[in-house]
């Protein structure tokens, strides 16, 4: 099967500071890839490169076999990428409804139908539609942010710590909703997440990063519950 998304020999960073060193990965359609690793190892940077927010210095990003390395992030979003940034992922001064409406910008079809679909996935947003997004709680904000990403036609979903700062209950609710949507829409996902116990049921492959490189690949997600093995990957 042809990979839906490939990264080949990615070298990227911020000005003089190189963060990724020849990183390569292939993702098959419908796969859920979890990226783990210690803080600062390059997980977020890799997602930024895949989403087109950061241009790689070397290497290529291929979507369904087409090189999209030179495609800017706003055009890349139209190719089927949905990217949830670690922070700053909603517009606080607009209402929840306006946030969703803005995210529907390029999509054909009925906004209300799509909004209903998102509200069925994230029911906590339903009574909040007229509220300003800035006054939502952390869990509601994250639900809105993911909902906004899913308002468009998405094939590949890139999620950067979707449960950061949430209570265990809110985190479980969000991850369950993401998983349900992923299955229903047959999405391929790359997720960076530290709640390993919560997320391990829903991933098909685990990539371990350290110091800007992918240092291990595990096809059995139960490795996420093996602390000694993880410590070895992180510090060994």
């Amino acid at each position: 099967m042809e990979p839906i998304l490939s990264a080949q020999g990615i070298v990227a960073g911020y000005r003089e500071r190189k963060v990724l060193h020849k990183v390569s990965l292939d993702m098959l359609p419908g796969e859920s890839v979890l990226l783990i690793g210690p803080n600062g190892c390059g997980k977020t940077t890799l997602l930024k490169v895949l989403a087109g927010v950061l241009r790689p210095e070397q290497g290529r990003v291929l979507l369904k076999g087409t090189d999209i390395s030179r495609v800017f992030d706003d055009r890349r979003a139209l190719l089927g990428f949905g990217y949830l940034m670690q922070t700053q992922s909603i517009f606080p001064s607009l209402t929840v409804d306006e946030n969703l409406h803005l995210s529907f910008w390029h999509r054909n079809g009925n906004f209300k139908d799509q909004r209903e679909y998102i509200l069925s996935a994230f029911p906590m947003l339903k009574p909040m539609l007229a509220r300003r997004a800035g006054v939502l709680s952390g869990g509601e904000r994250q639900a809105l942010a993911i909902g906004m990403v899913l308002m468009r036609d998405v094939d590949v979903l890139l999620l950067d710590e979707p449960t950061a700062g949430l209570s265990p209950k809110a985190a479980a609710t969000i991850l369950q909703a993401v998983h349900d949507v992923k299955v229903k829409m047959a999405l391929s996902t790359v997720i960076v997440e530290h709640n390993l116990r919560l997320v391990h049921e829903w991933v098909s492959r685990v990539l371990v990063m350290n110091q800007g490189r992918i240092v291990a690949e595990e096809r059995d997600p139960s490795v996420l519950l093996d602390h000694e093995r993880l410590q070895e990957y992180y510090f060994g």
Partner: peptide, 14 residues
Amino acid sequence: WAMGDQPELIPVLG
């Protein structure tokens, strides 16, 4: 208006 809130989010949403 949204652009003033989160300029980085605008292109990410297409």
